[in-house]
């Protein structure tokens, strides 16, 4: 057996840390939000600038990852008591709170800093997303009211608005509509999630729509928000000038979202709930691709 050199040991240690940090940034959620930001930029169909696109991707990735780590840092006590999340590196002690806080702050500052350097207005929108997510949603409202989801949604709508702002240089109606589409899409994702993991949220004493208003009302809210999300996406698509064929495809995918949303109201079951939860993510990703073409 050969002893490893100090350099190899150091490299292995760095790799191990990175492997621990990856769950802290919720790669799937961050990727989806990043995709909305890039779609917002590409939706303007301005002459493509690879460097700007790269800048948007990097700054949004850093800012979204930073805010996610900060959320996880603050919510580590909740994560520790929830079945779904108790194995997260912060909750089970593999990453110390100080280390996570430092990582979250560094990523956030780098992300917002790069964004401000690229364009002050773009930077402001990126900062607003981070502020709504970390301060308003996580620190202030999440443990107090189920309506915190609205602010979580507003924050989720910021990357797409930011991307659009970077391309057009202003906050326009299309950007607001796209942002609204994400805001109203979020309940189809998060509320189905809070129904699926109802017991988990109860044990952590986090107020959710199902625990406050019951499952029936929650399902109605999901259906209503799906209608508004699909409508906002459709109107934005028309205003952007998406080709007729791609609009047709968006309509088909939106119809799928609406059918599943109504199925949760009229034929509620765990299976329908789960399919809506998964389909909603696919819907958002597909819509973002169609807006970018």
């Amino acid at each position: 057996m050969t002893a490893k050199s100090p350099m190899a040991n150091h490299q292995q240690s760095i790799l191990q840390r990175i492997r621990l940090y990856l769950p802290l940034i919720k790669s799937l959620q961050t990727s989806l939000l990043l995709a909305t930001g890039l779609a917002g930029y590409l939706s303007a169909h301005t002459p493509p600038s690879g460097l700007t696109l790269l800048g948007v991707a990097v700054s949004l990735f850093l800012a979204i990852s930073g805010s996610t780590v900060l959320n996880m840092w603050y919510d580590r006590d909740i994560d520790a008591v929830m079945n779904r999340t108790h194995h997260r590196p912060l909750a089970d002690g593999r990453v110390s709170p100080t280390e996570a806080l430092r990582l979250g702050l560094i990523l956030s500052i780098l992300g917002v800093g790069l964004a401000v350097w690229m364009s002050p207005l773009y930077g402001l929108v990126v900062f607003a997303g981070l502020f709504f997510d970390v301060v308003i949603y996580t620190l202030w409202l999440k443990r107090r009211t189920c309506w915190s989801i609205v602010w979580g949604g507003v924050s989720g709508g910021m990357p797409i608005l930011a991307g659009r702002v970077m391309a057009t240089g202003q906050i326009d109606l299309i950007g607001i509509l796209l942002s609204m589409a994400v805001l109203f899409w979020i309940p189809t994702h998060i509320l189905t999630f809070s129904m699926r993991y109802f017991a988990d949220y109860q044990s952590a004493r986090i107020p959710t729509f199902p625990s406050t208003y019951g499952f029936e009302t929650t399902r109605a809210v999901i259906a209503l928000s799906a209608i508004i999300a699909a409508a906002s996406m459709g109107v934005a698509g028309v205003m952007i000038g998406v080709q007729a064929g791609f609009l047709r495809l968006m309509a088909v995918l939106s119809a799928g979202l609406l059918v599943l949303s109504f199925a949760t109201v009229f034929r509620p079951s765990e299976r329908v709930n789960y399919s809506l939860f998964k389909y909603a993510s696919l819907y958002m990703l597909a819509s973002m691709i169609l807006l970018s073409i």
Binding site: L253, G256, Y274, L282
Partner: peptide, 9 residues
């Protein structure tokens, strides 16, 4: 299209 997505899910 939607049916195939649901079959995958």
């Amino acid at each position: 299209l939607v049916a195939c997505l649901l079959l995958i899910i």
